[in-house]
Computed example of a mutant assay.
Amino acid sequence: MLSLLLPPTCGVCRSPGSSPCARCASELVPAAETPAPAGLESCRALIAYEGTGRLLVTALKYRNHREVLDHIAGPLAMLADPSAVDVVTWAPTTGSRRRDRGFDQARLLAEEVAQALRRPCRRLLDRLPGPPQTGKGVLERIGGPSFTARSVVGLRVLVVDDVMTTGSTLSRAAAALRREGATAIHGLALARTPRTGPAAVERAGRARQGRPGALKCGG
């Protein structure tokens, strides 16, 4: 009954139907490959945090459009190698952000990824008090937040985050996990902030024109 009263809409463009709709999904641009942040064996991201990709993350993060997980969790999990992972965790947001939103978007992503990889999802990291990274410039993000970790002796850990800019959050998370005995740490992010320059302009142009290279997400 509720679905009849509130028909599904795209979390990005608000048009009726799935979220993201076919048009918005075709406009998502794959994230560029960059070296893994310090302390991680590998790190991959699914989409570029620009244009439609930025709107999709905003829909999940600030408007609680969790239905987008049905379309992005599978492609995101495919970026990870399950044979190299024992346990999945997430880089937690601040306590105030979690209370305001009622959820932690990185945890939602991690739970979906873990299910797809058939690996356990456990809360291994606690974020120490400090300001959120959102809204900070690149130089302000370099230090990153601080974390403490639970014991992970002998485990290979996959850390999931929503948006990666400098990689400092994942690096600090990796450092905390290493101190507690992790033998290998891999990172996975829904979106990566693109580097500026001609390559970013070219990727944006491909997305607008629907050329090959735009990401295909599906359920």
Rank of each mutant, 00 (worst) to 15 (best):
A174E: 02
A45S: 14
D162H: 11
L109D: 04
C24V: 11
D126Y: 07
A173T: 01
A110C: 08
S83C: 13
L69K: 13
P30E: 15
R14G: 02
A38T: 10
P37R: 06
A91Y: 01
I142C: 00
G74L: 12
P7V: 08
L55H: 11
T166R: 02
L60G: 05
P82L: 08
Q115F: 05
T58E: 03
M164H: 01
R66W: 09
F103D: 01
T94C: 05
P145C: 05
A106W: 06
D100S: 06
R23K: 07
D86I: 09
L109R: 11
T165H: 01
C21F: 00
L28I: 07
A77I: 00
R119D: 08
R63M: 12
T52Q: 15
Y62E: 15
H71E: 11
L56W: 12
R23H: 15
P7W: 06
T166C: 02
L188M: 07
T34H: 03
P212L: 03
E180F: 00
R195L: 10
R99P: 00
T193H: 11
L158S: 04
A22W: 03
R44T: 15
A174T: 01
L40D: 04
R178C: 02
M1F: 13
R127V: 09
R179V: 05
P145A: 14
A174C: 01
R63V: 11
E27P: 15
A189C: 08
R150S: 13
Q105T: 13
P212Q: 07
V157P: 14
A174K: 04
A199V: 14
L69W: 09
V201K: 04
P194M: 03
R119S: 11
E41Y: 02
A84T: 09
N64E: 12
A182Q: 03
P131Q: 10
R122P: 00
L109C: 14
P75H: 10
G74Y: 04
W90C: 12
S171Q: 02
V12Q: 11
G213V: 13
C217D: 15
G53D: 09
G74E: 11
G137W: 00
L188Q: 09
L190H: 12
D100I: 03
C217K: 09
R141C: 06
L215F: 06
E111C: 07
D161M: 03
T196D: 11
R208E: 15
R178W: 10
M78F: 05
L108N: 13
P20W: 05
D70L: 12
V160M: 09
D104I: 14
C10R: 09
D100T: 07
A32Y: 10
R14I: 02
V201S: 14
T196H: 08
A173F: 00
L5V: 10
L128P: 08
V163I: 09
V153S: 10
A204R: 13
G218C: 14
G95A: 12
G205T: 12
R127W: 08
T169P: 03
A149H: 02
V201Q: 10
S19G: 04
V57P: 04
L190E: 03
T166Q: 00
T183K: 13
